[in-house]
Structure formats: structure tokens, C-alpha cells
Design a protein around this nucleic acid. Sequence first.
DNA 1: GCAGTGACGGATA
DNA 2: GTATCCGCCACTG
Length: 109
Amino acid sequence: MKNDFFEQVYEVVKLIPAGRVSSYGAIAAYLGAKRSARVVGWAMNNAHGLPEVPAHRVVNRNGLLSGKMHFNPPEAMEERLANEGIVVKEDQIVNFKAHFWDPAIELAL
DNA sequence: GCAGTGACGGATA
DNA sequence: GTATCCGCCACTG
């Protein structure tokens, strides 16, 4: 083990407060990972067995629940977001910008 | 070691 | 704002 990049992602995702959402690119940028947001999504894929990782709070730049289809069940993602007070319409977060949580800013404060 | 793929993002038209 | 292309890095076959 060498501090897997995935673990770094998990930590940031777990730091996402309730009622807030983040994006793959934002997390990757905060970690200083030039590897691209794609690797962040891959980390989420590894987070399948990690209930401590609220992957449902991580969406793409468009606020679209791109990964909801990978949830179990997929409806759990928008359901959890709705439970957090986030409105999801057509698999997309309403007023996503208002719910957006940027680790590079929030954690920097 | 090479090729294909993937929960994305940015740039360009 | 929408549509398309390319680049990015890691994992699997």
C-alpha cells in the first residue's frame, strides 16, 4: 500500500457535509491530481463496499447523477439526496450550483 | 507490453 | 446553450 489515490478520494467524499454535493473534477483538483476526474470515478467504483463513502453526493460537473446507475438500487442515490434535502429532477440535481461543495474551497477555509 | 474501456472535463465549432 | 473531439489516468483482458 502506498496511500492509494482512491483512499484520498474516499476521505474527501466522506468530508462532504449533508445537503451538499461535489463533482469528480473538484475532488481531483483538490487532491492536486492531474490524473483527471475519471480516476476519481474509478475510486467510487472501488467504494462499492464502503458505506462510509457517500458516493451519492458525488456527481458530474453537470449535476447529473451519472453514477446512479451503478448504485444498488440506482434509485437509492436520488432517494438519499432527497433525504439530504437535495431535489433531484430527471436524474439531475436541481439548483446543483447552490448545493455544490468544493473541497478546494470549503476545506481551504 | 499493448489495446480497450470507464461513475469526466475542457476546448472547440 | 448544444454537439462533437480529444485528453486524462487507472484497471482489465
